[in-house]
Design a protein around this nucleic acid. Structure first.
Lengths: 352, 352
DNA sequence: TTGAAAGCGCTAACAC
DNA sequence: GTGTTAGCGCTTTCAA
């Protein structure tokens, strides 16, 4: 950047194009009145000389504060969104060195008004960039349209939107993770039954974030083991008794190797049940690298976990925004899907 | 960093401690003659005010060029070291924005003199930092000692060294990857035989980089399938005839499901053989995400691949050095092991 | 041992 | 529309 060889400064450009550096700066940032002619000339010279702005000088001179607002659901220790939050915090630490602030704005994912309030707050005091996880799709679309209108770049997290102005998208290939999950659960065999454990959802009308994972799973089964019977077990995560009751009912009379799967991150609930009942001889596959799931993996109550490094992926998302704000760097990839990591007892310790 | 709230500049520190900013700078960088008394006073004020240098101003003013030299073996399209090289290039692009240059110095990994020459060259024109992959251990240890003496930070790649001054280490858990590999290959069964395909090494005395992987593998087998017979097949990678000959001899008379493993990154050689012979019904596990191996995975000639994202890990290594040079940031973790990724046909496309 | 001052390359306010 | 200029916060001579 400032090696003798490529030390082309804005001054060089100014001289070579016969204007002042103020003007060069104007065309560089599309800021204000420049005649077409000078504009073109400057651009040409910039190109010829291969001028690259010195970000240090630039950042030093423009005393802006650049803040990235991250809008995600509220979370509690260990749950899915807390992992995203962790990624945000990590990235925040990194980019703080570059004078970029990152802050989280949390909303109750069961309360669309709360979400709206957060969005309004952002528009009232516009940040340099926004990261947003759209639980409420319609409201989110409206919100990002507003951001786009104000030239505020935004990155979509988690689930994609019907919108085309996003700077980047970071999320998971949900369908494929379900498909993969089925492959791992069956492991080349054709089970008689497969138990799908699901969480009872209190509020109606909330979209289940794992539907397409479920679809991927069922498609695989349909293609490879059409004979296999699918048994859905609906449990209430907050009541051990209900879990025991539902699971006992289904599993205790089944003497074969039981294939069990759960599509959200709470497979540890199944593991806990199996532990309580002293049941072995099951093949259990679940999702996400939560501490509790890890324990279940180690204690052999869960055989495989499909994990997706949500935290690192989130770090990438924040970095992408940061790089955009600092360098104007357009993300290398616009749609970024997490890789699907297969974890078992032996490799999980190296999954950091 | 330069928000109104924490806008403590070197000037503030200078005033508060009753000296000039030149002096403050001197104590900040342990540069030159400052009396004990002023030194202590300045340090105290720095602490009290919570002064954090503005890296943009700092980088702008100090017109140094900072180059990171990466010393790795020569490589050719698609091989293991080319992946590391790719990671270096990617990171190079990233950190170039921060005025950091990264350059690669390649050596013939079969020629210790060549390696020595490269090291001498580095000492003749010392860079800001070094990344090095130690094939020649003794020479490397001597070299890094010299670096340490000159206060040049260095990061060790790939295999660890008996040395304690390294800034960080980035490599793979080789033993564990072998152990995991055995688990995946056997997949809960006890095979009658396992074929280990090995590459004939021309030069003697070269340490095999996969020995400990092999050890991990054999340990697992010893623990879980002591009955299994291990058959070593040594092939010459450059002669298809020799491969066919060796493999035919061993495999054609074996009618069962053949379990085959290779500990280096060249399992595609096995896949090619199987393709030539039209052999199915084998369980083949290998290492590394090479394009050719990927093809083999997709064509079902290889069932699983253990991959380790060498490229990304290398990016992290370069970034770690870069962050150290720019901010003085000590790496969060000193010893960094890659995670072990299990790839099959279904998740390999998401492994970017 | 210290202070003063001239930049580093860019931005932005102001003047013309 | 465009040029001029005063910084941004730090580093690094050069004098004292």
């Amino acid at each position: 950047m400032f090696k003798a060889t490529d030390k082309i400064t804005i001054n060089d450009v100014a001289k070579a194009s016969g204007v002042s550096k103020g003007t060069v700066d104007r065309v560089l940032h599309n800021r204000g009145e420049v005649s077409r002619k000078t504009r073109e000339k400057v651009l040409k010279v910039v190109d010829e000389l291969g001028f690259k702005p010195n970000i240090y000088a630039s950042m030093l001179a423009s005393q802006k504060d650049r803040v990235i607002q991250c809008v995600i659901p509220e979370y509690q220790g260990g749950d899915f969104w807390s992992i995203t939050a962790k990624g945000i915090d990590e990235a925040s630490e990194m980019v703080s060195h570059y004078g970029i602030k990152v802050s989280k704005l949390l909303y109750d994912q069961y309360d669309s008004e709360a979400f709206q309030t957060v969005c309004d707050g952002i528009l009232a005091d516009p940040p340099a960039g926004v990261l947003i996880a759209p639980i409420f799709r319609a409201k989110t679309i409206k919100f990002v349209k507003e951001l786009a209108a104000r030239q505020i770049p935004y990155i979509i997290l988690d689930s994609k939107l019907e919108d085309d102005n996003y700077l980047a998208y970071f999320g998971m290939p949900m369908y494929q993770s379900g498909y993969l999950c089925a492959d791992l659960l069956t492991n080349g065999t054709v089970p008689e039954k497969i138990y799908i454990v699901r969480i009872r959802r209190d509020k109606k009308g909330l979209s289940d974030p794992t539907v397409s994972r479920r679809t991927g799973f069922l498609d695989y089964i349909g293609e490879h083991c059409p004979e296999t019977e699918i048994v859905n077990l609906v449990i209430d995560p907050n009541s051990t008794e209900s879990i025991d009751c539902v699971m006992d009912e289904a599993l205790l009379k089944d003497a074969s190797c039981k294939h069990i799967v759960m599509f959200n991150s709470r497979v540890h609930l199944v593991a806990d049940y199996l532990r309580r009942r002293g049941l072995k001889d099951c093949r259990v596959v679940g999702f996400d690298f939560l501490e509790k799931n890890l324990q279940a993996l180690k204690s052999d109550h869960v055989q495989l976990l499909i994990a997706q490094h949500t935290d690192m992926h989130t770090v990438s998302a924040v970095r992408a925004m940061s790089d955009y704000l600092i360098f104007g760097k357009i993300p290398t990839r616009r749609d970024n899907y997490t890789q699907m990591d297969i974890l078992n007892k032996l490799n999980c310790d190296y999954y950091l």
